[in-house]
Amino acid sequence: MPPTAEALVDLGAVRTNIEVLRDRARNADVMGVVKADGYGHGMVPVARAMVAAGAAWLGTALVEEALQLRRAGIRTPTLAWIIPPGTPLGEAVASDIDLGVSTRWGLDEIAAAARAAGRPARVHLKADTGLSRGGVTPGEWSDVVEAAARAEAAGLLRVTGVFSHFARADEPGHPSIAAQLTAFHDALALAEKAGLRPEVRHMANSAATLTLPDAHFDLVRPGIAGYGLTPIPDLAGTGLRPACMDQFVVDIGDDEARAGEPAVLFGAGDGGEPTAQDWAEALDTISYEIVCRVGQRVPRRYVGGDGEWPDPR
C-alpha cells in the first residue's frame, strides 16, 4: 500500500545550499550539521548530499548520531559536541569521531576512553564566550587547555579543534557579537600559549556564516541554512532553497478539493504554498521547530540526488 503521507526532501536543494554556503565562507571549510535526524529531513541521505556538495565536515549533537553516519559508511570528519556524563566512548574513539569537550570531567572521560581503546581520541575544546549553553567557562579555560596539552603530550588525545557558539548572531549589529568574538580570540590565544595547535577553529553558525565574515576562521558550522531556511527572516538574497502530517482537518471554505489531490503543508513557496517561516510566524516559533517536528512515522522520499532514494529507515 502506498503511504498516506510523505515528506518530499529535495537533496538537490541541500546540495545547492551547501554550495551557496561554501561560496559565502570563502576560505573557510563548511561543516554540514545533521543533528536531530538532519533537522527532520533524514540524517544519512542529507549527509551524503552535503558531502557530495563539498562539505568538509559533518556535525551532530550526540555520539550515537555520529556513529550512525559511520555505520552507513560515511567517513567524512565528524564532530559530536554533546557528551553527557558516562557516555560510552570506545566505539567513537575507534571510529575517529571528533568529540566536543565542555568540561574538565568531560576531558578526563575522553582521555580514559582513549587509554582503554589504545589510540588517541580526537577532541574539540568548546569555549563558552557568552552563550552559557555548554562550553568551558572563562575561569576554567586555562586549566582545561593545559590539561588537554598534557594529555596530548601523553598520546591520549589530539586537540583537532577549538570552537564556540554565538548567542545572538541572528541580530546583526548586536553588541554581544563583538564581545563574543573578542572572548573567542582570547580563548584561542590561551590555547596557543598552552602549546595547542588545532586543525580548525570554528564559531560561525548559519547567521554568522551569512553575515559575519570575521567569524569564519577555518570552518563554518551552518545548521538550518543547509536546509534552505534562514535564521534571519528579513535577510534577502541568500540564494538558499528549502529542501522540504499524518491526518488532520482543514476548513477550505468555498474552495473545492477532490479525494487524492495533494496537499502541501510547506515548501519553497514557488507555487504559492506556505513556507516553514510562514508557519513559524503563525505559531510564534522558529522555522527550525517546524521542520524538526515532522515525525518519524511520516516516510521521506528523496529527489534531486543520483536518482530517487528510498527512506533508509
Rank of each mutant, 00 (worst) to 15 (best):
M1A: 15
P2I: 15
E6R: 10
E6S: 13
V9Q: 11
D10W: 02
G12H: 05
V14G: 12
T16R: 06
T16A: 07
I18Q: 08
R22S: 15
A28W: 00
M31T: 12
P45R: 05
V46L: 13
A47W: 01
R48L: 11
A56V: 12
L58A: 07
G59C: 06
T60D: 11
L67Y: 02
L69S: 05
R70V: 05
R70M: 05
G73K: 14
R75Y: 07
T76W: 03
T76E: 14
T76A: 15
W81L: 10
I83Q: 00
P85W: 01
P88W: 02
E91A: 04
S95D: 08
I97P: 00
L99D: 02
T103E: 15
W105A: 04
E109W: 01
E109Y: 02
A116D: 15
A117H: 01
P120R: 14
R122H: 07
V123D: 04
A127H: 02
S132L: 13
R133S: 05
V136D: 10
T137W: 07
T137G: 10
E140M: 12
D143F: 06
V144L: 15
V144D: 12
V145Y: 07
A147I: 00
A153Q: 15
L156K: 01
T160S: 06
V162T: 03
F163L: 14
H165G: 11
R168M: 09
A169Y: 02
H174A: 15
H174F: 04
S176Q: 05
I177A: 11
A179Q: 11
Q180C: 09
L181K: 01
L181Q: 06
H185G: 12
D186K: 07
L188D: 12
A189K: 07
A191G: 14
E192A: 08
K193L: 05
P198Q: 11
E199T: 13
E199Y: 01
N205T: 12
S206I: 02
A207D: 02
A207H: 02
T209C: 08
R221D: 10
R221T: 10
P222M: 09
G223L: 06
A225F: 00
P233K: 03
D234K: 04
G237T: 10
R241A: 15
P242A: 10
C244M: 08
D246L: 11
D246H: 03
Q247W: 07
F248T: 13
V250H: 09
V250L: 07
D254C: 09
A259T: 13
A259W: 00
G260P: 00
V264I: 07
G269H: 01
D270C: 12
P274V: 14
W279M: 06
W279T: 15
A280T: 00
A282L: 01
T285W: 00
Y288Q: 15
I290Y: 01
C292H: 03
Q296M: 08
V298P: 04
V298R: 12
Y302H: 07
Y302Q: 05
V303L: 14
G304E: 04
W309F: 08
R313S: 11
